[in-house]
Design a protein around this nucleic acid. Structure first.
Length: 966
RNA sequence: GGGCUCGUAGCUCAGUUGGUUAGAGCGCGUCCCUGAUAAGGACGAGGUCGGACGUUCGAAUCGUCUCGGGCCCA
């Protein structure tokens, strides 16, 4: 095929080619810190708040859950804080005043542990150090890490009051925590009692639920024969000894056995068997007969025969008692729901001093909370001789031996089970009854001003979460309520140094002094000097500021003794609604949103709800949003040693904050979040696509000022289509932000850049933008659209791409209206949709056009493959229509008809085939038309202008207008 | 073991009250352009919707079971 080569004149310089100072390469790691410094210098955070306070819609408060002030931030923090920041910025752009006060959880075992190790490393004796000295080291450490993490968060672009974060160890905060405690005292919910709690022998302290770590371990479990008391109805039925066969995985708790629990409705079977030469009767749940008497378990059992008779647990509990296998004790058989036939024997050894369930059952039936194990993990003197002074660990074997020698050991079995461990020392914990302070979940109380019937914390919590709180996702409600339903009383005491002391005094008779007034008296001193006063001042000094705090009859204050326990750290962070939301005039209570990982249903969400209800009767939040956890690409848990482990700080330094923020927003955070350095690396492509699209839009606006150049955009044009697409985008994105569907926001924006702008509109507009004369209506109209686009897009992206959007903002020329004066995009309001109303016919017309475009592109591809037509500009698109009305409608689109697919020319023709009302035919014109040397389009009008024989009419006119020859 | 929850192309996500050959973007492959150029465009190949069984004329969508994840608890 021969090609007519036009004069190779250099028309390039006569084109309106894109120009912009907005760099293609982001250099985020270099530029972000600069912009950050600029914002800080310009006091952006304060400015935004001031503006919204004056012109906005009111306050909207997200209350920050305090991370632990220990170590660098990790990917979980990154996700959490990014989501918070994006949501806050969206609300800001909606017009709300959105103060954000970040906080840190400062007290607690992990910090104390770390200090302990550091002290040891330095060769000093930790135990010899005074409490106050230890606390000061802990304070310094927490302060250091709060500061370090704060800087890392700021580097991520998180906007907030970083100069005034809340720290749970600050005196004012501590004082407010004590005020919350005083309210609980007032309500009568605080009590001290012996109760089994997870106890770390290694740390010699009670542990919080959150301080437990479950690990699979192999233990020897024992099946023990508990003789049925001879005088009881059940024993009398048989002429040989009867045994309850009881299974336990913790033989060391047997000395503390006070009862045996059965399930009331389950059937229990009687089995005759011979062991150690003695004929016996055993009782187990009938469902478990085969397992218990099956091969390998019972040691040396023979002649096993299941008797026909059965008895329910209920009957058994009424007709039998048992005697302890190696202690002189006669115990009851009790019924309990948690007894099942899933494992063991259906008869559960019950030691109220050593187990949560056991304790509950024991309390219900008036059993003592007997705990013969000391803090050291050794037995006291109330146990049989052979166990005294022995550790729990060594007594497992001793007890097994003892049972064996007494002929009460039915069998031994090694089992693999998951057992709680102390998360710091990694050692298995025990349950041990100790004196602890509690907050009662089920005791009804009234708050001052309450008129209704008194309600318990649990009832209040259930009511408050029923319809007063909006959960995102919705199942958060069931999860939280499930936990509230089943949680035991809240154990708020810990035996440690680094924390807020529980302000209780004891007199010489060991009676506790704990009144609202006494707590508030101490709180006053704490507010002035910090909680170290508890250790440095005498009871008299601590109470002196309030004469009513210590009643005369209680005893001389000089002789009072101070409580040694400190608060569970959850009580402190759970009081933040008071210490922060209610204490800072910039904030408000309740918060509009709490947003944390889904583990906080048990943690902060729940343990903020309870104090808030106990003290105010109100939930501290209106909405609760949770996100999932980062997992490896295969969906399993990550640990620091994994290849896929993402070091947050490293990744920020490698890719820049905007890329990571965008990534956070691209995943559905309600589920697990797969992540790896590789995945983040690849994610940079998405960022670049968006950046380039914005750059393209900017680059075509260098000579555009809407004041003088804006043109009306008719709906029946590609420009009209694009404006409508933008309107849809604005509406969708805004709605998705509002319901926190950030991944949807991301997808909408990314796809809009990629498809609507880059592939369709931007591509189609190239010819007119470059080749028309600068001031041509067609070009100006397109710029009008692109100007609106880049403003809307940058605003919609601003909450996510905080740095890039602001950079774009600087490069947008002549921003209209209020936007013009804004120092940063982060002061801007959301874009609004144009008020253009589009009727259904118009939409159908656009859809038709897009369908024709698809068709034409297909034909172009075919031509390319079959006859080497590589440039669409060398083809003509022919619209075949018979219907006059339709033809007129299409003709209104003018050049759009060819630019839609980049053809050189469009034409109309009669239809040559039956079928749809309009079809397109793409025709190769390389042999028919000359190519315009300027626009490269092959058109019939090339050469019609005598002055410019190598140009199309349009280009000739443009050249004349420009007034300069190439 | 229990509660809650998730499982759609290599990746990230759509799939409205069950209804035509399950969609998008990215990535990948092939090609084109070289006037968005360390850019841009076109086309193409990828999925038995974790699995099984059921309900139904019809199921990615409903039910039961099962497998594999996650969080929280024991």
């Amino acid at each position: 095929m021969t090609q007519e080569t036009p004069d190779k004149k250099n028309y390039k310089t006569t084109l309106n080619l894109p120009q912009t100072a907005f760099a293609m390469e982001a250099k985020l790691t270099v530029n972000e810190p600069k912009r950050l410094a600029m914002w800080r210098e310009g006091r952006l955070y304060e400015k935004v708040l001031t503006d919204r306070a004056t012109n906005g819609k009111g306050k909207w408060v997200l209350h920050d859950g305090p991370p632990f002030a220990n170590g660098d931030i990790h990917i979980g923090h990154l996700i959490n804080k990014t989501l918070k920041d994006v949501i806050l910025r969206f609300r800001t752009m909606e017009g709300y005043e959105t103060p954000y006060v970040p906080g840190w959880d400062c007290h607690g075992l992990p910090i104390e542990h770390k200090i302990q190790e550091e002290v040891k490393k330095a060769g000093k004796d930790f135990r010899a150090m005074g409490t106050v000295e230890v606390r000061q080291l802990c304070y310094a450490s927490a302060e250091h890490f709060a500061k370090a993490q704060g800087e890392q968060f700021q580097r991520l672009g998180i906007l907030g009051d970083w100069a005034n974060p809340y720290l749970t160890m600050k005196p004012e905060y501590e004082a407010e925590t004590l005020e919350v405690f005083a309210r609980f005292v007032e309500a009568g919910l605080v009590y001290k009692q012996l109760k089994p709690v997870p106890w770390s022998v290694a740390s010699q302290t009670a542990l919080a639920d959150a301080e437990l770590e479950y690990k699979d371990v192999e233990d020897a479990s024992v099946y023990v024969e508990f003789p049925v008391e001879a005088g009881t109805e059940v024993a009398k039925k048989f002429d040989r000894p009867v045994y309850l066969i009881v299974w336990t995985t913790t033989p060391w708790t047997l000395p503390a056995n006070l009862a045996i629990a059965v399930n009331a409705t389950m059937q229990y079977a009687f089995i005759e068997y011979t062991r150690a030469g003695e004929k016996r009767i055993g009782i187990v749940a009938s469902e478990l007969c085969d397992k218990v008497f099956g091969p390998g378990l019972g040691q040396g059992i023979e002649e096993v025969r299941v008797l026909g008779e059965m008895m329910t647990g209920e009957e058994l509990s009424k007709r039998a008692e048992y005697v302890h296998p190696f202690i002189e004790y006669k115990g009851p058989i009790l019924t309990a729901d948690y007894v099942t036939a899933t494992d063991g024997t259906g008869m559960v050894h019950t030691a109220p001093g050593h187990g949560e369930d056991d304790y509950d059952t024991g309390r219900k039936h008036g059993l003592a909370v007997y705990c013969p194990v000391l803090a050291s993990g050794r037995f006291d003197d109330t146990v049989p001789e052979f166990l005294r002074g022995k550790t729990v660990k060594e007594s497992n074997g001793l007890i097994t031996e003892e049972l064996k020698s007494r002929g009460r050991l039915f069998g031994v079995q090694n089992i693999l089970h998951s057992y709680p461990h102390d998360w710091r020392t990694k050692t298995p914990i025990i349950f041990r009854a100790t004196e602890q302070w509690f907050i009662a979940m089920d005791k009804p109380f009234q708050l001052s001003g309450d008129t209704g019937t008194p309600q318990s914390l649990r009832e209040r919590a259930m009511t408050a979460t029923e319809d007063g709180v909006d959960f995102i996702p919705a199942w958060g409600q069931a999860r939280l309520q499930g936990m509230l339903q089943s949680r035991p009383d809240w154990c708020i005491s810990r035996q440690r140094a680094w924390g807020l002391p529980i302000p209780v005094f004891y007199n010489e008779k060991d009676e506790p002094l704990l009144t609202p007034a006494s707590v508030r008296a101490v709180a006053k001193r704490v507010r002035e000097k910090g909680s170290d006063v508890w250790f440095t001042e005498t009871p008299t000094e601590l109470l002196s500021c309030d004469q009513t705090a210590c009643p005369i009859h209680f005893g001389e204050t000089a002789k009072l003794r101070k409580e040694k326990d400190i608060f569970d750290v959850w009580f402190e962070s759970g009081s933040s609604w008071r210490a922060v939301l209610q204490s800072r005039s910039t904030l408000k209570f309740p918060a509009d949103l709490y947003l944390e990982g889904s583990d906080q249903h048990r943690g902060w969400f729940q343990l903020s709800l309870l104090p808030s209800l106990g003290a105010t009767g109100q939930a501290p939040y209106k909405q609760v949003l949770t996100h999932g956890f980062v997992v490896k690409p295969d969906g399993t848990k990550v640990s620091k040693s994994d290849k896929e482990y993402v070091k947050a700080v490293d990744e920020i330094n490698r890719h820049g904050a905007d890329v990571l923020r965008l990534w956070c927003c691209s995943v559905d955070y309600q589920n697990d979040i797969p992540a790896s350095p590789k995945a983040l690396q690849e994610f940079g492509d998405k960022y670049r696509k968006i950046r380039n699209t914005l750059r393209y839009l900017l680059s075509n606006l260098y000579d555009f000022d809407p004041k003088t150049d804006a043109r009306e955009v008719p709906p029946n044009s590609l420009d009209g289509w694009a404006m409508y697409q933008l309107d849809l985008l604005i509406a969708d994105v805004t709605e998705s932000y509002d319901v926190y569907q950030l991944h949807r926001v991301f997808r909408l924006l990314h796809d809009f850049c990629s498809v609507q702008v880059s592939s369709i509109y931007g591509n189609a507009m190239k010819d007119r933008l470059y080749c028309e004369m600068p001031n041509s209506p067609l070009r100006r109209r397109c710029q009008t659209v692109m100007h609106a686009m880049v403003i809307a897009l940058s605003k919609l992206l601003a909450p996510m791409l905080v740095f890039t959007a602001d950079e774009v903002w600087e490069h947008i020329p002549h921003k209209p209206g209020k936007d013009a004066a804004l120092q940063s995009i982060h002061l801007a309001w959301l874009p609004e949709t144009s008020d253009a109303e589009v009727d259904e016919d118009q939409k159908e017309e656009w859809e038709l056009l897009m369908r024709l475009r698809e068709d034409a592109l297909g034909q172009l591809d075919k031509l390319k493959k079959e006859s080497g037509l590589n440039k669409a500009g060398e083809a003509e698109i022919v619209y075949q229509v018979d219907d006059d009305a339709l033809r007129r409608k299409l003709q209104a689109y003018g050049t759009d008809l060819e630019d839609l697919v980049g053809c050189g020319h469009y034409a109309f023709a009669e239809k040559d085939t039956p079928g749809p009302a309009v079809t397109v035919k793409v025709v190769d014109r390389r042999n028919d038309y000359a190519a315009c040397a300027r626009s490269w389009k092959r058109r019939p009008d090339v050469g019609k202008d005598a002055d410019y024989p190598d140009l199309s009419t349009r280009d000739a006119m443009a050249m004349r207008a420009i007034g300069s020859l190439p």
